[in-house]
């Protein structure tokens, strides 16, 4: 975990993202969001492969 944090974070400033307005959702979608946050984490293998490749590229630079 620490490894990728060092690689990805070139500077603290890059990791403080700008502010933007809030998002308002319908009650139905807020319920969906609550369910999403309550369930156990899910692994997406396609995204994992992409992140691994990008970490390798990041290390080269």
């Amino acid at each position: 975990m620490t490894d990728f944090l060092i690689v990805a974070a070139n500077s603290a400033a890059e990791n403080v993202f700008a502010a933007e307005e809030r998002i308002t959702l319908s009650a139905k979608d807020q319920q969906r969001l609550a369910e999403m946050l309550s369930r156990p984490p899910k692994l997406n293998k396609r995204l994992r492969a992409a992140v691994r490749e990008e970490l390798t590229e990041t290390r080269k630079n």
């Binding site: 975990m1 490894d3 990728f4 998002i23 959702l25 319908s26 139905k28 979608d29 969906r32 969001l33 999403m36 946050l37 984490p41 899910k42 692994l43 997406n44 995204l47 994992r48 992140v51 691994r52 970490l55």
Partner: peptide, 25 residues
């Protein structure tokens, strides 16, 4: 995941994204 009322807004919980790194390392 898309929302029901707006399919062009999609969400992923942080825990799912963190799992990518825990699993990788």
């Amino acid at each position: 995941d898309s929302l029901e009322d707006d399919a062009l807004h999609l969400f992923s919980p942080r825990k799912d994204l963190e799992l990518l790194f825990i699993d990788a390392f």
